[in-house]
Design a protein around this nucleic acid. Structure first.
Lengths: 104, 104
DNA sequence: TCAACAAATGAACAGATGTTCATATGTAAA
DNA sequence: TTTACATATGAACATCTGTTCATTTGTTGA
């Protein structure tokens, strides 16, 4: 038996980590998340702002919600979505730093 | 014309950001990157350690290299790969914090 | 209840992605 | 140059993923 610096426990974590990064690994989802930085928006507002169909936005919000990156708040006919977590902002900021440095 | 808090310049950045996160959004690639945290490894070492084929590892290293996340150093027959950038560690660490908190 | 609107959902489709298999390239030692 | 080994690469294939389209669910106001 040989030494491993990655235990089985950590293997599970790495899998979850990959799953987390998948949520950020799509242009539509990144744009949705960034749109929610400053204020909550309903589905139609997102769709119009991002020039996506209502259906496409809704499908992606579903993905983001199941990944606990956004949350929805019903107000009458509308459901307002916002970021579920400050981590979202810091993860994106970290990535942005990397992208910016590559151009420097 | 309506106000946008996301300029065209930023749209490009968001696209690049999604491309960056794609590199982390795969279990094989995450495992390769984490294996390179502590020390550089050649392709065969990675393949054995991660129980992947030589070809699969090589294909993924190509992706990671083109994304400037790893770099290779030839030493005779072997090519030793290592992380190209400290950002890799901090991005993964940031993600790990998020994953860990979700379990807490 | 009905009409109108907002959001969610499922099926279908096209495009992207990761692996395998076979092969080519590159390096070192005989 | 030959042989052996390390790595890279291209094609093929199966799987995954994001969008569209059609429809359903849920809410409000008449």
């Amino acid at each position: 038996m040989k030494e491993e610096d990655i235990s089985i426990r950590e293997e599970e974590q790495l899998y979850e980590l990959a799953e987390l990064f998948k949520l950020f690994a799509d242009n539509s989802r990144i744009r949705i998340l960034c749109s929610l930085f400053s204020k909550e928006l309903c589905v139609e507002e997102l769709a119009e702002k991002l020039e996506m169909s209502q259906s496409a936005v809704s499908h992606q919000l579903r993905v983001l919600k199941s990944g606990r990156l956004v949350k929805g708040r019903r107000e009458g006919k509308y459901i307002y979505y916002s970021l579920a977590d400050d981590h979202v902002v810091s993860i994106i900021a970290q990535g942005r730093d990397h992208v910016e440095e590559e151009h420097g």
